[in-house]
Write a protein that binds this DNA or RNA. Structure first.
Lengths: 126, 126
DNA sequence: TGCCGTACTTACCTCAAGGTAAGTACCCCA
DNA sequence: TGGGGTACTTACCTTGAGGTAAGTACGGCA
């Protein structure tokens, strides 16, 4: 969900799902957490080339509010915070599988470039 | 795809699919055309309460460029233009099914309101 | 002593998505 | 004669998503 509150009213399910997943980096965050299970803030930042710290924090907070990610704070110095997917986050990710496959086919069809990311895993969503 | 060109480079399939489906009314247009098979401009406008004519035209043109919708012009007075989904549009819609179901569950979970639309069909995406 | 690392917060700015409203050209109907 | 319908186009404006860059508090290390 965007920084400005929405949570409906919605036209349909797609609308409601989009509200939660729209945001430049949200689907990538979902994917990073799915891949690695649990990630620290700096790991996510490094895994999402180009993201600004401001947007990363903002998106993570919104996703936490929306019940997609869990935030675990370890009170120590230097600070340590771990992010992981909740059940809702995992099911959202599963629901995005088909869309990811469609997109991958589209990339092949139109011959679009892909951003080069070091150590990018090969998957159906890749 | 947005008015400003993108078509990549993309991070992944989700990114590519989102590029095509992001736009306030695109998923609704997809759904309208899926439901009715073929629709005229004014029918779409009436089916999407709140859409402005400018945005409807703009979205339809972009979706045509992206190979999602087919535009059939009948040279007559008054003008008649029919819109329908291409195979790519239909497969995109199918790929959105799971997401729609997830969103519908989310609506139920958080108890969000839905916009009241007269004659709205009852479906898994509704 | 000063730079790197942790995980943020804050202020400011830009740009484009989307909204509003009017104009176009033609016909039909009351 | 003028209001409504067809399918748009154009100009202008607002809003907010996202970017940039600096600041914070603390410790480790050279």
């Amino acid at each position: 969900m965007a920084a400005s509150e929405r949570r409906g009213p919605y036209f349909c399910g797609i609308d409601a799902a989009m509200d939660v997943v729209s945001g430049k980096w949200k689907s990538l965050i979902l994917w990073e957490l799915e891949e690695h299970g649990t990630r620290r803030f700096a790991e996510l930042r490094r895994g999402l080339p180009g993201v600004s710290e401001k947007m990363l924090v903002q998106h993570l907070r919104e996703m936490e509010e929306d019940g997609l990610v869990h935030r675990e704070v370890y009170r120590q110095v230097p600070p340590k915070v771990e992010y992981s997917l909740t059940e809702h986050g995992k099911s959202l990710n599963a629901a995005l599988e088909a869309l990811g496959r469609w997109g991958t086919e589209r990339i092949a069809r139109i011959g679009a470039e892909k951003v080069h990311v070091t150590q990018q895993p090969a998957t159906t969503r890749g």
